[in-house]
Write a protein that binds this DNA or RNA. Sequence first.
DNA 1: ATAATTTCTTATCTTTTGTTAACAATTTAA
DNA 2: TTAAATTGTTAACAAAAGATAAGAAATTAT
Lengths: 204, 204
Amino acid sequence: MIPPQINDTSLKIFRDGMATYVVFEDTEWEILKNYIELKVLQKKDHFAVSGKICDHIGFIVNGSVRYYHIKDGTEITGYFSFENDFVSSYKSYVTRTPGTGYIQALEQTEFAIISYNNLEQMLNHPLLAYKMERFGRLVAEHYICCYEERISSFILDTPEERYLKMLKTDPDIMQRVPQHYVANYLGITPVSLSRIRKRTVFQS
Amino acid sequence: MIPPQINDTSLKIFRDGMATYVVFEDTEWEILKNYIELKVLQKKDHFAVSGKICDHIGFIVNGSVRYYHIKDGTEITGYFSFENDFVSSYKSYVTRTPGTGYIQALEQTEFAIISYNNLEQMLNHPLLAYKMERFGRLVAEHYICCYEERISSFILDTPEERYLKMLKTDPDIMQRVPQHYVANYLGITPVSLSRIRKRTVFQS
DNA sequence: ATAATTTCTTATCTTTTGTTAACAATTTAA
DNA sequence: TTAAATTGTTAACAAAAGATAAGAAATTAT
């Protein structure tokens, strides 16, 4: 099985990204890299679509994506990911069931990707299994921490507080993402975000 | 190191709970069980408190807990856990930093617990490490899926829809938990939940 | 460069939620 | 059993958000 070649620059960035969680030695990496492929999406192309099983987990080498759902015929954006983030319809990927949302490139975006089958092979490979399990655990734990924060903010903060916190946490998000997507992400309407920005004398 | 004894009934329930994710053989279990302790909290006792590092991960053998934060001097309940759930201030436990919230028993509650040190030892034990990493990954993935659902609901659904969905997902929650806690959990005030229940001819 | 599309703001009106307070109902404690 | 505390409901009013629409601003496409 000869996977589509991924270039060395992207591979290096991906290796560094994984090293945040688990460091792979050169000998391990020589094996591991054979399971990594490259994917490039143009603006508005989809990484995952509703109704289909999401077959890959991606790592953004450069670019960005948004997660959205369709409710009553309109798109509602729930999340964004940027460089060095992992991307997938996790539930779909993990449970092998059709996803309920979409993941779309906000601009031309380059991913290092691991197919479900390749991940299975890595998890069964005697020289990779242990570190891959560990890697998976640490990544999952990291995202749990992020999600915890996000849920707390819905429980504890008003939309206005959520907006102001976001400006501190992701100072450049308003520059990189259309405002009406950000509004959805905050759980409010675009009109409402516009009003909040007006009354908070929008810093940034 | 001789840990406080945990009784066999509770241990069996905990073993079944872990087996949802990874099955441990008898020989493995004989080692593993030495790292498990028992904890019993009376109603209103705390499993974790704000400002302190949460040193244990718990598994509810029987009973229930609520997660809450204090904002402007008042308690806001963000989550509940019941039998067969894992319980911890995850971020605190994982990152070894003081937690920002509280976990409190809603009734007398019995936990199988793993201290951070014991978990480290298990993760370093040659006969347990691999399966424990895998177990950790699968549990974390499971909670990611749950959290994804919850966040989606804040983005996509109105409070009323969120309430109705909850009735389907957790049909007995209104019986087990005070209503004003549930209101917080839904991201609204107790008064608002009372109104929603009135106008939806509260089923259940 | 111009037209078309998308995005953002503003205004009006409606609906919902938050706030506060009073009271009833229920649970807990003495 | 009675008293105290907690919990749930309802009402009145204020504040915020949703819905819709119109127009301005910015971006994208031709």
